[in-house]
Design a binder for these strands. Structure first.
Lengths: 196, 196, 196, 196
DNA sequence: CATGAATGAGGGTTCATTCAT
DNA sequence: GATGAATGAACCCTCATTCAT
């Protein structure tokens, strides 16, 4: 593969960074906090990442590769489009539930405001994810499972937007309720609106 | 109104803060930058706001009151539900176009991660805005303009989620294209899916 | 008299200053706190005192004049030396009890470290007070009430030192016990040691 | 010993802090002045002390441990009570002469007004020192060297109070005369008054 | 690989004081 | 007399990063 390999320490640091950002946004991701979290000194971090910006970049790329991998698995399976869409939503939500910190890292785009490079990775995660949803919708339209009078692009767009909105509210509420049933409700709504 | 009055200077500072956050997120909102923007010294800011946190809070409340006002005007008009929904979307997008900085302030929830109070204002803006959309959808369902087999809450939810997603992509792209046509497309999609 | 007259406002400010210093030392005596205490704005203070240093100076002179007046009354009375000494101690302690803030202002010499002028006033209060005690001791020695084998100066010195130490401990304890009985104990000790 | 160890830099900083406070009270103890005195930058100080408050605390504890050590040596010696008392006074005064700054730090209780923790250390230094004087007086009473008709506590109290008063006057005078002879005078007075 | 020590740049904030009104 | 607004200087402290060891 062309994907970069991460040393154990790097993975450890990346996960610590995700944890910290999850706790208090990018303002909590300081070299001091990070070093404490990994139980090394601050200069030691620079053995593994050339700078803080570079670290965040690796964090995003690390998450991106895992997301793409997950989406690929689902879309490449033998399920029907309806089942695939269900899986896409459920597994995405399960991922957030099992690691809520990621919500901050991935859905708080504004965090990376200053850095074009970071913003563009977040953007690319969004776009590439899009294509998986889009493919499933198109398949569903061809198979007659989903209505065809609305372009697949716009449907995929609405689905992703709704999912994001759902997760963001969950986050703003302080993760104070169970996300999973919300995903089921979302799916019900999607299928109702998409019925041919 | 019972809302707090702002002195000229306060409004000036609030707008400068919005501008700065628009340019570089909360990391650009430093007292130094703010003071330069308003052409006073840093300590002078403290005559008008008790602290930086308090300033951000006022920024959010200032925007909130304006948003609520705009939504109220639209919903209280004599238009049909269909027209109202169209207005809600178009005017919201126009507001963002005429002042893109606001996107950062209002849609980058993660920015306020550290501060429960700020997060809760952003959350409340979201929830209160919701209620306006919801009312319009409900009216449309009663008048037979919108389908009734899907609960109004979920429809409102999808609409807001899609709008946010649309604006966020626009933001991540660096405001590199015209947002308005995207709003029109969104509306087309909404109406197609909501047709009774 | 040659003593300066104080306007009502000046007295009000002086007393507010004493109160503040009593609460938190000279670090609490800020123009902001002072203005709040007197219910005027900060610049208004400068109508009555040319500077903060000048204010403190007036505070000390104000207190000094009152102390000297009190001491004079006692020493000029018709009492015996023994009674006068008793009065000097009791009335001094009563003054502190009725207004503990003064302890800080008068006995925390270090506060004025930076300012020779202020230090010298505190010093002069100490020296002038000394002379009253000294006179009483001398009278007592002449009348045969007190032993004469130790110079009056040294006896007066020990008495004042013990009194100060007593009050300082009371202060450091947070005024957590009744000072008056300690004064009585002190007096017992003095008389026991001074008996001819 | 169980006492905390100080690194060289910490001792250097502590001494610089004492020097600064000696020159101009706590108002002169700024991070900027301190850094200049130690020839490092301000942030460097924070590698050795977590905050300015913590530094002052360490200063006091550092001095306390040295004082207690000195007192212990004297009291544990084989001298007679009379000799021990003489030593206690002389060595204390010598310590102040050789390092007058300490007067400010230890005898300007008001300095720490704002901080309960600091005040309580100063208080504890006072109390613990007390116990050494008390022991010597008691021994002297038992051996018949000192009169027994006045409780040892009160005698110790008078001695400490007189000593403090002596040193404070010396300080207020700007260290303008030799403190040592004053100590001798004090001792003469003590012995005269304490003679059985 | 990792550390202890240090740094320049910058953070938010408070201070006593001034000035025009 | 008093105010609102402003200021220069200074405050304590944190940041990401570097370097010698």
């Amino acid at each position: 593969m062309s994907e970069p390999q991460y040393s154990d320490r790097q993975v450890q640091i990346i996960n610590a960074a995700i944890k910290l950002m999850g706790e208090g946004g990018i303002q909590m991701l300081t070299t001091k906090n990070l070093a404490r979290e990994v139980s090394v000194t601050e200069p030691a971090l620079y053995r593994h990442f050339s700078s803080k910006a570079n670290l965040i970049l690796q964090v995003l790329e690390y998450l991106k590769s895992r997301i793409i991998y997950r989406l690929t698995c689902i879309v490449d399976s033998d399920n029907t489009p309806v089942e695939k869409l269900r899986e896409l939503v459920k597994r995405q939500f399960q991922a957030f539930v099992s690691r809520p910190e990621i919500v901050v890292v991935l859905l708080s785009e504004g965090l990376y405001q200053n850095d074009k490079e970071l913003s563009s990775i977040v953007f690319s995660i969004m776009l590439e994810s899009s294509s998986f949803y889009l493919q499933v919708i198109k398949d569903g339209q061809e198979s007659g499972d989903f209505r065809s009078d609305v372009p697949a692009e716009r449907i995929a767009f609405m689905i992703m937007g709704s999912m994001r909105f759902c997760v963001i509210q969950w986050h703003l509420s302080g993760f104070s309720y169970d996300l999973i049933p919300r995903g089921d409700e979302l799916l019900d709504t999607f299928f109702a609106l998409l019925k041919d």
